[in-house]
Design a protein around this nucleic acid. Structure first.
Lengths: 186, 186
DNA sequence: GTCTATAGCTTGATAGAC
DNA sequence: GTCTATCAAGCTATAGAC
């Protein structure tokens, strides 16, 4: 078999940048073909399910990244506060210092496959669970920890939205700077 | 001249429900024609500028609603806390108890006319200014009041996003319940 | 495994009857 | 003021050459 010109991971990474900025409906296969350097027919060869299959691959890749770089990192040893700071820097990277939208926001707009909405909800649940866990390690009761985790995620999503509207990244950066305190770390 | 079948305000209201849920790009003239009961050609007669003109009319109408029901209400007499509670109930109405997205979020996705992005930014600035004003009336210094206003809007936007992903309205309702306290009211 | 070419549909937008 | 009919361009998706 001939070798693929572009690795699946790189293809998903490039498609991700389109989907997260435009949402599912507004992203076209022509645009994906353009940023990947492949023709549409080649995309269908690698993803017979078409656009829906591509966005699901993108979602899976993002999910894997969060699993390894956020959820897992929050469970490692060391001071809880240090772990949160590490995760904070990872998030700063993923969101381009607040210049790149969250896939939970843009891909949750109507139009995409139902499986995508299910995946997004599951990812958000995992994220909430991970934040709740670290908040409890910081000494909070379960109910309080869950509340703090929800509040932290609300602030992350909201600051990204305000940042996009205003063209400023300071909302997001300030939110991340206060993340450790928000989750109960001294 | 013959009479219009549908008043401009009603037309904008119905188009708003599409635009706020799907964003600019993903909303089609066919859909607008369907919910208004007009044919596409009739829409072009009333808005020669097409989809861009319609979304600008929608933005203007939403801006006027916020001007009269939120910004103005925050400047009226009476206890600051009471005014915030009144505005809170207005917001609960506008966002369908947290089931309807914010136009600042969905219409700020790329693809729409530049004038729309400018209008959205201006509206957010007005909103921030109004929240800052009421927070200062509650006794906060300007800097602190501005910070609280930003935080309040971040929570409103973020809670709407989480609510959409999870299919729950409690995030938004809880945010509104804490709005007065957030803005410095006893 | 990628390509060119194309089918069939939907889009935003226009012309012209009533 | 609204309609039917139509256009060119874009869309998703497929067939078949290499």
């Amino acid at each position: 078999m001939a070798t693929a010109r572009l690795k699946d991971e790189e293809l998903a990474d490039r498609a991700l940048e389109l989907f997260r900025r435009l949402g599912y409906e507004a992203t076209s296969l022509n645009q994906i073909a353009e940023v990947t350097g492949l023709e549409k027919a080649s995309l269908y060869y690698r993803y017979p399910g078409g656009k829906e299959a591509i966005v699901m691959a993108v979602a899976q890749r993002v999910g894997a990244w969060f699993e390894g770089n956020v959820f897992e990192a929050l469970k490692q040893g060391g001071e809880p506060g240090d772990r949160i700071e590490l995760v904070s820097s990872r998030l700063r990277e993923f969101y381009g210092d607040g210049t790149k939208p969250c896939v939970l926001e843009t891909l949750s707009l109507p139009g995409g496959p139902v499986a995508l909405q299910v995946a997004l909800r599951g990812a958000l649940e995992q994220w909430l669970h991970a934040f709740t866990g670290i908040a409890m390690e910081c000494g909070l009761e379960r109910a309080a920890a869950e509340s703090c985790a929800e509040q932290a995620l609300i602030e992350i999503e909201g600051s990204l939205v305000l940042g996009r509207v205003m063209g400023e990244k300071r909302y997001f950066l300030r939110t991340l700077a206060g993340l450790a305190e928000k989750l109960g770390a001294a």
